[in-house]
């Protein structure tokens, strides 16, 4: 059976440049000027999972992102990596969305362009790392959803999964359609090559606005977000930084003294 797969990705600021992030003390917004946007690392694992399945069982991989139009190039990158089609959900009305509103918007686009057999996401985004969109997408779509996936196989309409837990792993079988959140363990994403890159520009990339989607305007963007951001700040972690000097033995004695003081029995 050919698989029609949707993959949700999120363009995020490149973590290599996090040192450039600063907070404006007046406006209380964070400044990320000069930081390139990239497709999150985990999202590439999600895309690879979809491409692997498509390459083996035929079908189609469609990529979705909800982001400003400036992130179009990130979607072209996904197409260059091998996705067949991309949808960029971009509208002022989507701005300020939390995970509930984001997943609602994505679900609407998936419903409109579907049906899909599988929806794959990274377990969490690289920037906010909330790890909420995957499960919430499943809820909006009314599909079973599973996260923390370390292994993904497919056989005759059934997805076989391994999922990491605190004390080991659990294997699941899930009936399609379903929403899956994958971890880095699930695969090694392919590198984009020149041929893929050149094909990407001729693949369909459509921008969808709020009016194109079956969304309830009260459930998108800032209006549809139950959570609201407040203050932002840099973590403060000042400590006294007293230097201990001496021979290794003297230093060891001091460490043992501190261990005792901290209540550790030695």
């Amino acid at each position: 059976m050919a698989l029609n797969i949707a993959v949700c990705v999120k363009p995020v600021p490149d973590s290599k440049h996090y040192d450039k992030i600063s907070i404006d003390p007046v406006t209380k917004t964070w400044n990320r000027t000069g930081i390139p946007m990239i497709i999150g690392d985990l999202d590439k694992h999600a895309l690879e999972a979809a491409l692997t399945l498509r390459d083996k069982f035929q079908g189609k991989v469609t990529v979705f992102t909800m982001a400003p139009e400036s992130t179009r190039d990130n979607l072209v990158e996904a197409l260059a990596m091998g996705a067949d089609e991309a949808f960029l959900l971009s509208d002022k009305a989507f701005a300020g969305a939390d995970t509930l509103a984001t997943s609602h918007t994505l679900a609407a686009a998936i419903t409109k362009t579907g049906p899909y057999d599988l929806i794959i996401t990274g377990n969490e985004s690289d920037d906010g790392s909330t790890g909420q969109v995957s499960a919430q997408l499943g809820e909006w779509l009314g599909m079973p959803h599973i996260m923390n996936i370390t292994h993904l196989g497919y056989q005759e309409g059934v997805i076989e999964l391994s999922v990491v837990t605190e004390n080991g792993s659990v294997n699941y079988e899930v009936v399609l359609p379903a929403v899956l959140g994958v971890t880095r363990k699930v695969n090694k994403p392919r590198l984009t090559n020149v041929m893929g890159m050149l094909k990407a520009r001729s693949k369909p990339l459509t921008i969808l606005k709020a009016e194109d989607l079956p969304v309830d305007v009260r459930q998108i963007g800032l209006t549809g977000s139950p959570t609201q951001p407040g203050d932002i700040y840099s973590p403060k972690m000042g400590r006294k930084t007293e230097e201990i000097t001496g021979s290794p033995e003297e230093i060891a004695d001091r460490i043992i003294l501190e261990l005792r003081k901290a209540g550790i029995s030695v």
Partner: peptide, 18 residues
Amino acid sequence: NEDQKMLQKVVREFVEQE
């Protein structure tokens, strides 16, 4: 151009890894 910019990225990613 856009393709050349993307090529730069594609090569850089390969080079950093391999």
